[in-house]
C-alpha cells in the first residue's frame, strides 16, 4: 500500500500539513445494523492544495468530509487541524471552528431563499473576523452583475457559484465541497469548477472536492480513491487540467 503522507508535488507555496487524519473510523448503528462508513482512514491535506476525493456513493468520502468540516465526529481515530485535535472539541468549539476556518459548498447549494446573492454572502461576512466584501467574493465567481437577485431568480449554476462565494468570503483556510456539480449539467458544472479552481489559485485556499465523477479528478493536484470506507490509493496528477478541458 502506497504511503499516503506524500509531500505535495509541484513545490507550491505553503508546504505545511493543514489536516492530518489518522486511523479514522466511523461506525453508524441503525437498530440491528452496523455500517462502517469509514474503516481506518489516514489522510493529510496540505496548505493550498486542490484535492479530489473520488469514489462511488457510500464509499465513505462524505463521511470523511463531514468529519474534517467539524459536522461529525469519528468513532475512533484523530483529526489534527493546525495542531488542534478536532475530535476533542466541544459542540460550541466545533461551531466556532466552522465559523472561522471552513468553507462549505453543498450539492444542493443550501442558499437561504429569502436572502439575495449579496445577502447570502453577507450572512457569512457578518460573523467572520477577516472577510472580503460580499461584492468581491461574488466578483471572484463571476456573479458581479447578479448581486441583488434572490436564489429563485438564479439558475442552478449561478446558485452554486453564490454558494462558493459565500464559502470563500470569510477567507477560510479550507474549502470543502461535497458533489458541487452533482445537481448540474456538464456545461454549468464546468463554470462551477472554474470558479473553484480560480479561488484555489488566487486565494491559495486548501480545497477538497468530493465527487463520483471521474472526469473531475483531472482538475486536482492529488486524487484520493475511495472504496468501502477506505482510501485505496492516492494519485498525483502530473498536470492540472483546466475545467474547460475536461469532459463528461
Amino acid at each position: 500500500m502506497p504511503s499516503l503522507h506524500v509531500t505535495k508535488p509541484g513545490g507550491a507555496a505553503g508546504e505545511g500539513v493543514i489536516f492530518s487524519g489518522r486511523n479514522l473510523t466511523k461506525i453508524y448503528r441503525t437498530g440491528e445494523l452496523e455500517v462502517r462508513a469509514l474503516n481506518g482512514v489516514d489522510l493529510d491535506l496540505f496548505e493550498g492544495e486542490m484535492l479530489v476525493l473520488l469514489g462511488p456513493s457510500g464509499s465513505g468520502k462524505s463521511t470523511l468530509l463531514n468529519i474534517l468540516g467539524g459536522l461529525d465526529r469519528p468513532t475512533s481515530g484523530s483529526v489534527i487541524f493546525k495542531g488542534h485535535n478536532l475530535t476533542r472539541l466541544s459542540e460550541s468549539e466545533l461551531t466556532a471552528y466552522r465559523r472561522e476556518h471552513v468553507g462549505f459548498v453543498f450539492q444542493f447549494y443550501n442558499l437561504i431563499p429569502s436572502l439575495t446573492a449579496r445577502e447570502n454572502v453577507g450572512l457569512v461576512t457578518e460573523i467572520a473576523s477577516n472577510p472580503m466584501r460580499p461584492e468581491e467574493a461574488l466578483e471572484l465567481v463571476g456573479l458581479g452583475p447578479r448581486l441583488n437577485h434572490f436564489p429563485s431568480q438564479l439558475s442552478g449554476g449561478e446558485q452554486q457559484r453564490v454558494a462558493i462565494a459565500r464559502a470563500i468570503a470569510k477567507r477560510p483556510e479550507v474549502l470543502l465541497c461535497d458533489e458541487p456539480t452533482g445537481a448540474l449539467d456538464s456545461k454549468t458544472g464546468i463554470l462551477v469548477l472554474e470558479a473553484l479552481v480560480a479561488v484555489n489559485r488566487e486565494l491559495a485556499t486548501t480545497t477538497a472536492v468530493i465527487t463520483h465523477n471521474r472526469a473531475i479528478k483531472d482538475i486536482a493536484q492529488r486524487v484520493a480513491f475511495f472504496a468501502d470506507g477506505k482510501i485505496i490509493r492516492v494519485e498525483e496528477n502530473e498536470r492540472q487540467l483546466d475545467p474547460a478541458d475536461i469532459e463528461w
Binding site: 461551531t95 472561522e100 462549505f104 453543498f106 443550501n110 437561504i112 450572512l123 457569512v124 460573523i127 459565500r166
Partner: peptide, 16 residues
C-alpha cells in the same frame, strides 16, 4: 429547518 441547519453548518451557533 433546512435553512436553519445550513446556517448551523456555516458556523452559526444554536442561539443565533
Amino acid at each position: 429547518g433546512r435553512e436553519l441547519a445550513s446556517l448551523r453548518v456555516l458556523g452559526f451557533t444554536k442561539a443565533e
